[in-house]
Amino acid sequence: MTGGLVYLLYVLFAVGGIALYLAMPRTQGAHAKAGLVIGGGAVAGLLALCAQVYMAPHGSNIFYYIFAGVALLAAGRVVTHPNPTYSAVYFALVVLSVAVLLVMQRAEFLAVALVIIYAGAILVTYAFVIMLAQQSGGGSSADQRAREPMLAIIASFVVMGTIAGRVSDLRELPNSPVEVQATADVMDVPLADTPVKDAGNTLSVGRTMFNQYVVVVQLAGLLLLVAMVGAIAVSRKRIPADEHGPPPPPPGEIGRTVPPF
């Protein structure tokens, strides 16, 4: 990104920040609509900038704009919606949009893994939001008040805007071999006339993962195991047996014992 366009990027980030600030929940009513409009404008500007800077030589793809826009606006809603359940729903939207974006980058396996894993994770989030929010009896006052939104927005957008402006200056980079090889348009990918031998993405991801990164895979498995143990240990309810119901009868005493199912 060259010259004045970088400043345009900064300006767009700043506008997005303002939109986010307006939409943040407040006790005296948020300007969510205004925020949405301005944010939509900022997102549109950002995408237009992307189109101008990156897409021009290759031609553009409408799906990128749609789903990038949806992802950004939904993300904005996640952090600004006063109701955590809606935040979770919008987050699902973010995940699905990102999954589509990944598919467009020929990362189908990653996209589906994303959906499967997040479907599980978000599902749990839903369940907890539902249970806890129901228990606390409606909207908590904590959700109505953002905490120092101005400072947070300034800090975050300055950091990310600067980094984005700096790092996305990729025109000078050579075209990658992958790009040359992967000439099929995104529309062709889901269709059946892709050669069978070019099993492609899943296969190559699997190969790379289990050849080059096999130790990391093991470590990831270990990490998951540790997390599972930790999660069980953390969330176990510690209730003394004598408080809630009688203690389980000692083995050998009369009682209905049946095989586990």
């Binding site: 973010v94 974006l101 990310m160 348009d185």
Partner: peptide
């Protein structure tokens, strides 16, 4: 085809 830069800007914004 969208270029990598567009994704990077999007990632930063997210």
């Amino acid at each position: 085809m969208p270029d990598a830069g567009a994704y990077i800007v999007l990632g930063a914004a997210l």
